[in-house]
Amino acid sequence: MTVLFYIAGAVAVIATGMVITRRKAIHALLYLVVSFLALALVFYVLGAPFVAALEVIVYAGAIMVLFLFALMLIDAGRAEEARERDWMRPRAWIVPSVLSAALLAEVVYLLARGGVPGRTAAGAAAAGGAAGVGGAAGEAAAQVKAVGIALFGPYLLGVELASILLLAGLVAAHHLTVDLDSEDGETAGAADSGAPGRTRQKGGRP
């Protein structure tokens, strides 16, 4: 199990590194999906199978598809690559890398010093090893149920607020793009391609 965690973690880090350094947006998106899939595996190893599945279904499977849709509609074409090469000179990376490295060093230092409250580094290793063997199946089933009970119990208000947030996002996204095509005559379709009855779009036969 621990080996799985390290492999998945390495894949996630490498894929994320590729995301921020690609020139073509689609390639970066696909690497991001790979990163999310690797993270889903990490979630599973951490004893959260429900969240692992949710990560793939919602994040990698819906949110990233939304990104893909938007990218297809903002189709940049050949000019994109030349522009990106122009923008991403090596010099631009120096200062941000230094700052980020400083932040990362701080985080790693804190964690290595046994930064999680209530346990030392040695105690952590022992607890991790003992829990590992017992781990998966029975625990995980209880976890899924516990999440459901928590969502409908103490966190009920949060669920309602989240649904209102999603409604607000839906309305906002629709309102922002409802008259997108009246701006100019570029590629087909408004952003909300799922809306029926928007027959103004798609210049040819639907």
Binding site: M1, T2, F5, G9, A12, V13, T16, G17, V19, I20, S35, L39, V42, V45, L46, G47, M88, A92, W93, P96, S97, L99, S100, A101, L103, L104, V107, V108, L111, G115, V116, A121, A124, A125, A127, G128, A131, G132, G135, A136, E139
Partner: peptide
């Protein structure tokens, strides 16, 4: 609980967060 020490997962989260930050900045 989990087969792996959560501290390592936190470290992974830190690394990923910093990479994302790098992306936003650059």
């Amino acid at each position: 609980m989990s087969a792996v020490d959560p501290v390592y997962a936190l470290g992974l989260a830190g690394v990923l967060f910093v990479l994302g930050l790098l992306g936003v900045l650059v």
